[in-house]
Simulated assay, not measured.
Amino acid sequence: MRSMDIKDNGPKPNVFDIETATVENGAYRHVAWTGKHLQVTLMSIEPGDSIGLEVHKGTDQFLRIDQGKGVAKMGPTKDDLTETEVSDGWSIQVPEGTWHDVENTGDEPLRLYAIYAPTHHAQGIVQETAEQAEEDEEAGRDEPPSWVEEVDEKGEETA
């Protein structure tokens, strides 16, 4: 199945070849599946670009590189980051509240997938560029669906 054929069917069972879909994905971010407690997104970062330095409150993140090479940057503050070289097959685990970025240092697109727990983005959203992703976030178009299970800082479900 080509990544462009993937439709986010919400909290229903879903099966697809994630490695093929990740390598074929050309969009900056393509939300492939949204559940009540986690979400799968495919990402493509162009040479010299990065995901962008960010921090998520209340969301853990798992990333896996399926093509290319780069540098993972993580730390307790945006000015205190540890850098690790990553490439095909590497995974990156980002605990909530950790500043992080992944930069493409290669000469081909860096293709990876990210799993957010809990859900972090709008169901099924496809953002071709980082600029579009930023615009969607600022305009409120990149919010998780209302049916996801939200948790508070203590890990308890909210109403």
Rank of each mutant, 00 (worst) to 15 (best):
L112E: 05
V31L: 08
G70H: 02
Q123Y: 03
I51H: 12
G52A: 04
S50G: 14
V40T: 13
P13C: 05
L63V: 15
I92P: 04
D5H: 07
K36H: 14
G10Y: 06
E108H: 10
T20H: 10
D17Y: 02
A21L: 00
E19P: 07
G75W: 08
W90G: 10
G97M: 04
P47E: 09
G48Q: 08
D101R: 03
H37V: 15
G35V: 08
G10P: 00
A159E: 15
D79K: 11
G26S: 13
Y28V: 10
G68M: 02
E108F: 06
I92H: 04
T20W: 08
G140I: 09
D8E: 01
T82D: 11
G35T: 03
Y116L: 12
T158Y: 00
E85T: 12
I65F: 05
E85R: 09
I65G: 06
L112Q: 05
G155V: 00
K7L: 12
E96Y: 08
W99M: 08
E138P: 05
H30K: 15
D88Q: 14
S3I: 09
G35F: 03
D152Q: 02
F62P: 04
S44C: 15
K12W: 09
I45G: 03
P95K: 06
E131F: 02
E153D: 14
V40M: 09
D101T: 10
T59Q: 11
I45M: 09
Y28K: 06
K12T: 14
V40H: 04
H30W: 08
D66A: 11
Q61P: 07
T129W: 02
R29S: 05
P118F: 05
W33A: 12
D80H: 11
P118T: 03
G68V: 03
Q132K: 12
D49H: 13
G58I: 00
E150P: 08
W147E: 06
L110M: 01
E149P: 01
T22P: 01
L112F: 11
A159S: 14
S91N: 13
L63H: 07
V71W: 06
T77V: 07
I6C: 04
D101H: 06
P95L: 03
L81F: 01
D88W: 08
G35N: 08
P145G: 08
V71I: 15
T158P: 00
T105H: 00
G155M: 00
E96I: 02
V71A: 08
E149C: 10
D88N: 15
D136A: 12
M74L: 14
S50I: 12
A21K: 01
E83H: 08
L38E: 09
G155W: 00
E83A: 13
T129E: 05
H56E: 03
I125H: 01
W33L: 10
T98V: 13
E83I: 06
I65E: 06
E96Q: 15
S146Y: 11
